[in-house]
Design a protein around this nucleic acid. Structure first.
Lengths: 324, 324
DNA sequence: GTGAAAGCGCTAACAG
DNA sequence: CTGTTAGCGCTTTCAC
């Protein structure tokens, strides 16, 4: 791999001039051409590591997501990527696997790699932004918020939960259960509160077992739905607080031989890769990609030097009631 | 951010000793403790950029995939990640979006970032591994192969195509169509050849329109299936050569009011996030995650210094016939 | 407009 | 076992 010294020698200029050419600084037409010619001849590619060591920053942003196999987060990632690429930044995606330890590790890497900033979908509410914050590197929280004074982009989860439960109520269901995520996680907690608000206000039938806490994945939703169906007074509809759990719930329903039409289902999120039209399923769609582009925009502004106080942007979900 | 010099000063040793401590080289117990204490006191984190510039390599591997929203590739990514993490390497995921230009760009970044190696699921058959190969950095191709002499991990696509078509034949279908991916892409081409081999050998009914080329995504599969259904002699079954196109095909079937049972469907790949048990769908499951772990293992061996000639590992798909 | 020179923080000889 | 020293390749004053 050629260096600026070799290019400089071949072009008959100083290394500084080569650097200037590649950074768009003022260099005479003549030498500029000489440098470019020499560079192509040597297949010169600037060494980013050296540049970074010198400049103490890079055009790389880290995106930390808790589950790379969840379409919600991959859509979000697409959003971040699209926005970042447009500004010449590259995105490095890291899967924290809902594991605070992995998250901490990647955060450390982002810091010690001199990345320009990080967009974080926190794995838990006990994130440690200490190391990265000390460096003054911008951080934007997305989907979930953090106790730190950093920018954040989230959705109105409470409203989403309300919309989901209300839609089921409007369809005539009166025994509406809720499959929530792990206790203590903000997004799911708020969605569940939305559900509770509706069932309380509408005075629908309730039951101790109507609130199920499950892990955020397909198997969690399946187990929770199975438990619901085994109750002495089973619900006639359910709100699931994320996309994957809805898939699991539908699987359990199918396994029990219950057609979607005779059991109401509302999901906060989008059912991924749907292959049939489930007439009775309500989706409260989360703007995953938009969440990503917004977070990226905020991060890029910070990187560009914006020092206004941290902002929190709240996006709204879009209810998609079934076409009957 | 503290440097080894500050740590050295505080611990009363030389910078070299600090470096040795952090690299596990032999240092007396006593100084070792002194260094560690000083390091914690200063919240010292080694600067990877500097280390990299010096060592000309890092513990980062790049993984380039063509579609981050395709569960096949995210599963593959999980495999790579699991294996890499186990060896202390971190994975940087880049989405090439099936775009040779983006692919080239990320390849350049991987090279100029001094990444230890790259695992590439090529976006097209015209990859340019020139820059990265010149540097002698190991590359492993996964899923699809390349014209370059590098390690590769793939599946026996021909066999997968044969298995898919055969399963449909065995179920009694005699007008078996095929929805293939874009022409010229190796994986889909081989799967399609497998299908053709079967329909030819078994002398099933054929028709000019029974071979559809579509893009690799859901909408491609939907359009292709719609076209098939519009034929004067429509098929009674179809082989789709990837997962997403199968989703689209099922959507088209549903839209046409055709139940899965009266139309045979075999997919090379796995139907993601299935919410019902489609009795007549045959999945020829691709070992996505295993593909990832295998590729990562090979890459790590190369990074460790293995210089044996390039190998190509071929994994087999697993046929999952429906439980009737 | 251009060159010389001083580092960015770390590692790897080389002495001792 | 440990300190000294010389870079890795680039950017950036500071002179000219």
């Amino acid at each position: 791999m050629a260096t600026i010294y070799e290019v400089a020698a071949l072009a008959g200029v100083s290394p500084a001039t080569v650097s200037r050419v590649f950074n768009g600084l003022t260099v005479s037409e003549e030498k500029q051409r000489a440098v470019r010619d020499a560079a192509t001849k040597l297949a010169f590619v600037p060494n980013r590591t050296a540049r970074r060591l010198r400049k103490q920053s890079s055009e790389l942003v880290a995106l930390l997501i808790p589950d790379i196999e969840n379409p919600f987060f991959t859509a979000l990632a697409r959003g971040v990527e699209d926005r970042a690429q447009a500004s010449g930044f590259s995105v490095v995606l890291c899967n924290t696997d809902e594991d605070p330890a992995k998250e901490k590790r990647y955060l450390g890497i982002a810091a010690s790699e001199q990345m320009a900033g990080v967009i974080l979908a926190p794995a838990s509410d006990e994130v440690d932004l200490g190391s990265i914050a000390e460096l003054g590197r911008p951080v934007v929280a997305v989907d979930r918020t953090t106790p730190y004074p950093v920018d954040a982009v989230k959705v109105d989860n409470r409203a989403a939960g309300i919309a989901a439960a209300t839609a089921l109520f409007d369809q005539g269901y009166r025994r509406i259960a809720c499959i929530a995520g792990p206790a203590g996680i903000e997004t799911t907690e708020d969605r569940f509160l939305g559900w509770r608000q509706v069932v309380t206000a509408r005075k629908t039938v309730t039951h101790d077992g109507y609130l199920q806490h499950a892990n955020f994945r397909v198997d969690g939703g399946r187990a929770a739905m199975t438990a619901l169906l085994a109750l002495d007074t089973p619900p006639d509809a359910v709100v699931t607080t994320n996309n994957l759990m809805a898939v699991g719930a539908l699987q359990a329903l199918a396994a029990a031989g219950i057609a979607p039409a005779e059991f109401g289902l509302a999901v906060v999120g989008e059912l991924p890769f749907l292959t049939f039209a489930p007439a009775s399923v309500v989706e409260v769609r989360l703007p995953a990609r938009h969440l990503g582009t917004t977070a990226a925009s905020m991060l890029l502004e910070r990187i560009a030097g914006d020092t206004t106080p941290p902002r929190t942007v709240v996006l709204r979900a879009e209810v998609k009631t079934p076409e009957l």
